[in-house]
């Protein structure tokens, strides 16, 4: 008998005969969490993620590139990692080099350029799939175009978020998008820059992941 079979048979021998009722998660959220308007969700999202030390800039389709360039200049960054397979990545690739900003692309498997990713990639730009107002959380589903390390290794991470994609709660996000039917290789919730309070409960940012998280909150009209 294998360890697997021994563990399972021990558990099965003592499994309760009566099945407990399925917990009513939907009911709890319906009675304990508010459903807000788009504007309220955006401002709640913003307030929460700012409290977690993220920087938020309201932008429009017309001005987000200029805003991003301005922030890069203010932070003294002259290099950014983007995807050449997304429209926002291509927009940066089209415009930034002419302004003296070096654009790196994630065009090959990490093994070919791991050292460069870790040592010479100061910033990156990815999109967020959606966000959560309740906790000030970005939802990212990294994929072949914007791989997992893009939102983790560079010290400054810029995220483009469409303000119309903010859910009230994590529960609402997974229910509405049908996550239970299938998840990607890696799904991420990100709620601020990397941090730790492991030394004498003193909060410090930039533990292992990005030191700065900059959200470009995209709405049709400037707020």
């Amino acid at each position: 008998m294998s360890s697997r079979d021994r563990i399972l048979s021990k558990l099965k021998a003592k499994m309760p005969s009566t099945v407990a009722a399925l917990p009513d998660v939907t009911g709890w959220f319906a009675t304990h969490r508010v459903v807000e308007s788009a504007a309220d969700k955006a401002s709640r999202f913003r307030a929460c993620i700012e409290l977690a030390h993220a920087e938020v800039h309201a932008v429009t389709p017309a001005n987000w590139l200029t805003t991003l360039r301005e922030i890069l200049r203010t932070k003294g960054l002259d290099k950014i990692l983007v995807s050449e397979e997304t429209t926002h990545g291509c927009a940066v690739l089209d415009e930034f080099p002419a302004h003296g900003i070096d654009c790196q692309v994630y065009d090959m498997a990490i093994e070919a350029w791991k050292t460069e990713m870790f040592n010479a990639t100061p910033a990156s730009l990815t999109a967020a799939r959606a966000a959560i107002a309740e906790t000030g959380t970005l939802i990212l589903w990294p994929d072949a175009a914007e791989p997992r390390l893009m939102s983790l290794v560079p010290p400054v991470h810029f995220v483009l978020l469409d303000a119309s994609k903010i859910y009230n709660t994590f529960f609402e996000a997974m229910q509405t998008e049908g996550w239970a039917n299938g998840l990607p290789t890696n799904a991420l919730l990100i709620s601020g820059p990397s941090k730790t309070a492991d030394i004498q409960q003193t909060l410090a940012y930039g533990a292992h992941g990005p030191k700065e998280l900059v959200v470009l909150l995209l709405t049709e009209d400037a707020q």
């Binding site: 906790t135 994590f170 890696n186 709620s191």
Partner: peptide, 29 residues
């Protein structure tokens, strides 16, 4: 069920360190 996660995650981070959510919630499939 996946829907069991949001209540448990909320209880965990709020009870542990008093955060409404942790910086990262990493789901690997």
């Amino acid at each position: 069920k996946l829907e069991h996660i949001p209540p448990l995650l909320s209880l965990l981070t709020r009870s542990a360190t008093g955060q409404n959510i942790s910086t990262y919630f990493n789901m690997i499939s």
